[in-house]
């Protein structure tokens, strides 16, 4: 089954997706990433209020056998984290683009958004 890539999202080479909504952005991992990671059993999220810089470790996602770092695709302040992942991290597998989102970031540098990949550019990486 081909991995889903949504047209309206921005992407990184490290398989995160970004949905920009004005001054904030929602971040998650792509369908391709979740399928490579397989059964996700744990997500360690940052605390709201934390400042992060593009390229920093944003959070850690673990499958049964592996530990994977997820990198911040953009800089800013963590506004919200997806608390449902605490008890049901497997929703990242089930629904990576909607219920399985990771964090909402308040952007500190909007120009970074332009450097992200669009859907077509991301598809070429897969």
């Amino acid at each position: 089954m081909a991995d889903e890539v949504r047209e309206d999202l921005k992407y990184t080479e490290t398989h995160e997706w970004v949905e920009v909504k004005g001054k904030t952005a929602i971040v998650g991992i792509t369908d391709h990433a979740q399928s490579e990671l397989t059964d996700i059993v744990f997500a360690e999220l940052p605390e709201a209020g934390k400042e992060i810089t593009k390229g920093d470790e944003l959070c850690v996602v673990e499958s049964v056998k592996s530990v994977s770092e997820i990198y911040a695709p953009i800089s800013g302040t963590i506004k919200k984290v997806n608390e449902n992942l605490e008890d049901t991290p497997e929703i990242i597998n089930d629904d990576p683009y909607d219920d399985g989102w990771l964090v909402e970031i308040e952007l500190s540098n909007k120009d970074e958004v332009d450097a992200l990949l669009d859907a077509d550019a991301y598809k070429k990486l897969l």
Binding site: T38, D39, V41, S63, V64, K65
Partner: peptide, 11 residues
């Protein structure tokens, strides 16, 4: 082989 379907399911 590390897995065929899913480690959890196989387990």
């Amino acid at each position: 082989p590390v897995q065929f379907s899913s480690i959890k399911d196989e387990h």
